[in-house]
Every structure is written in structure tokens, then in C-alpha cells.
Simulated assay, not measured.
Amino acid sequence: MTDTQKTDTVPSTAGTTSAKPVATLAMVTLDAPNAAELGEFYSSVLGWPIAYSDENYAMLSGPSHALGIGTTPDFQRPSWPDDGHKQFHLDLAADDVQAAADRCVELGATRADPQPGDTWIVLIDPAGHPFCITDAKNWG
């Protein structure tokens, strides 16, 4: 089979195949108190252009996915540490983890306290969402 040929099955995490996916991930959307401001933050962090932004919604265009941000008037920041109750977080890969974390802090992120590991750095975005800076070499 060549790289351009398609298959109706995909590998599962168990090493076997499963049926063709029902859908593909197109975008992750974050809630925030101010969509435009958080859109600017993530545009600077990821280097992705802002495809759309107003007071209610922002969307960044990534190379294969998009990041959406919606203004939620009653937004409540996630807590940290959260004792394993957070709903999700973003893992961002960087060649220099420390330099990337430092730049994110310059852009408005804060370092989470405590730090739960030593191979990544947990940061909190301006809206309160935790995210990690990880070593790009670990992602293959």
C-alpha cells in the first residue's frame, strides 16, 4: 500500500485495528472570559494566524487543526492544583522547554505551583487553563 492509498481501518491503541473513524478532530475550543485576548495569547504562543476574532469568538488556523475560543460571561477559571479533576489540558512541544516556558510567561502565562513533573513545565494561560510545555523530541 502506498502513502496515498486509504484504508477503512486505523490502528487502535491496543495494537489491533478498528473500524473507520466516525469523525476527525477539526478544532479544540476553549471557554474564556475574553475570546479576543486569549486568541492573541495563543496566536503569539503557537505562531498561528488569527482567522477570526471579535468580543465573542476567536479562531486560530493551525497547520492541521484550529483552535477556537469562545467568550463565556460566567467563566470560572480551573483550579490548580486540581487533584486530577481538570477536564483537559494542551500539551505543546518545543525544542527548548525552558525558553518556551519563559516566553509564554512573557506573553501572559504564569507557572503553575506546584510543578508535578520534571520533564515538562505546567503553565496557566491568562484565562486560567493549564497547559504543558514538553520536549519536542519526545513526540517523535
Rank of each mutant, 00 (worst) to 15 (best):
D96I: 05
D118A: 02
V105C: 12
D113H: 08
T9K: 09
H65Y: 09
I133S: 01
N138Q: 11
F75Y: 10
K20Y: 08
P130E: 13
F75M: 05
D102S: 12
T29R: 08
T13Y: 15
L107N: 08
Q98K: 14
T29E: 13
D91T: 01
G70R: 13
G70F: 15
G62Q: 08
T110I: 02
S64T: 04
L46I: 07
A51V: 09
D113E: 15
S44Q: 15
L25N: 06
H89Y: 15
M1R: 09
E55H: 06
W120L: 04
P11E: 12
A32I: 04
A93L: 06
L92Q: 04
T71H: 00
I133D: 00
N56R: 10
N34Q: 12
G39Y: 09
A66T: 07
A101P: 00
A35C: 02
A58R: 01
R103E: 11
T72C: 09
D91M: 04
G140T: 14
S44W: 07
D91A: 04
V22A: 15
T71R: 00
E40F: 02
P78W: 10
L60N: 06
P78L: 11
T16F: 08
T2G: 14
F131G: 00
H89K: 13
R103A: 09
D113R: 04
A51Y: 11
A136E: 02
A32Q: 02
A109K: 09
A136Q: 03
T7M: 05
T72R: 05
K86I: 06
G128A: 03
P114S: 14
P73R: 01
Q76E: 15
T134R: 05
Y42W: 13
V122Q: 03
P21T: 06
L25F: 09
G62P: 09
V97G: 07
Q115F: 00
A14K: 07
G128E: 03
L25H: 07
A93Q: 06
S43A: 14
A26Q: 12
K20W: 06
H65R: 06
A19R: 15
V22E: 14
F131H: 03
A23M: 14
G39Q: 11
K6P: 05
T2E: 15
L107Q: 08
D8C: 10
A51L: 14
G39K: 11
W48N: 13
E55L: 11
K86R: 08
P33G: 12
F88A: 13
W48L: 11
V28I: 14
Y57A: 08
V122L: 01
G108S: 03
V97W: 02
L60S: 07
S79A: 13
M59Y: 06
